[in-house]
Write a protein that binds this DNA or RNA. Structure first.
Lengths: 186, 186
DNA sequence: CCAAAAAGCTACTACCATTAGCCTTTGCCG
DNA sequence: CGGCAAAGGCTAATGGTAGTAGCTTTTTGG
């Protein structure tokens, strides 16, 4: 019985590979165990339940997207930074649709997910700084940005748009409309 | 062994009640059978599989939302009609979040769902008629409307907005921004 | 070098979808 | 009105799922 050398993060990594290959519905402990070369009950040494594995997967994916956000915003400001953020969001979702489907939509309500969710928020807040919005306006603005990015990305990744062509143009118009809705900034 | 008097539509109705009560994750044949007062295998006389039941549920929900759309648009035109449609969308989702979660996002790709999906589309097309958009613009415009309505409603119904207050204002702004992005009409 | 913790395993339970095959009710036709 | 076939229930069984219990082996730390 040689030891497989697993760890919690290795199990999460296997879960990512399972959903990348076969979709989020194929995420079972049996599939993860098979990929790790281990019997299913052995996973309980590293993960307390399937629900916890899904939460850990959520943390992983939230952080991955926050990294993309930070990279996209770096060295840009104003409308340029916002545009880059929104394109980074869409690019991530299309590159990893199953991971996006595994990303919880309400991270702030779960203690283990909140930190990763806040990382994303902070990047957006920083990008909006040039507009010097008052706190209430800032909340509405961040919400609207999320609505546009999440709405478009979730529809696109789920095949919700009938015709595949011209989606770049639709998204470009959405970003332009969102930017137009912001007050002028110095 | 008195007969329960089931039918396919009665089974779908029981499925609606199951998800309304316990969420979309609780939709199992066992739960539906219990609500019908019947053993689980008996459902196969009316429904060929759980997957088919989910499709039928999707048809039901798509048509229900299309009905709301039609009712909201009736007797209105222009920006007034669009505003009413978008509020009807949000109101339906908040009244029946589990049904919305059971609504397929890509109905046009499934033959059994396409008709119901097209009903929704036609109501939106009719509401946009005053703008006399050319076909390409019409596609982009309908997509943008869906992005805003679906993005907001799916985030709200999933608890994706941290603070509950002022959501009416956020949605109002989104609708206003969408309407501003349309060309002026006569 | 040994003891204890960590990390595997098998065996088991409970629940799920689905199939097979049986039996009773229902409705139609002679 | 009788009977027969179809329809709509049922139980039993299969294979897949999450999770638990308890055992064995490996690793590690004193």
């Amino acid at each position: 019985m040689p030891r497989a050398g697993l760890s919690t993060q290795a199990v999460v990594q296997a879960a990512v590979e399972v959903i990348d290959d076969d979709g989020v519905a194929a995420l079972t402990l049996a599939a993860v165990a098979a990929r790790c070369g281990v019997a299913a009950p052995s996973l309980y040494k590293h993960v307390s339940s399937l629900a916890e594995l899904k939460t850990l997967l959520g943390v992983r994916v939230l952080n991955e997207l926050a990294d993309r956000f930070a990279a996209a915003a770096m060295g840009r400001s104003g409308a340029d930074a916002i545009t880059a953020l929104m394109h980074a969001y869409r690019a991530y979702v299309m590159a990893h649709p199953a991971r996006y489907a595994a990303m919880p939509v309400d991270p702030l309500h779960h203690p283990d997910l909140a930190a990763a969710g806040i990382r994303q928020l902070e990047v957006i807040q920083a990008a909006l700084r040039p507009w010097q919005l008052d706190p209430a306006d800032q909340i509405h603005t961040i919400r609207k940005l999320r609505v546009v990015a999440h709405g478009f990305a979730s529809l696109e990744s789920a095949g919700g748009f009938g015709l595949p062509e011209d989606l770049d143009e639709t998204y470009r118009q959405l970003i332009a409309t969102f930017l137009d809705s912001l007050p002028a900034h110095p």
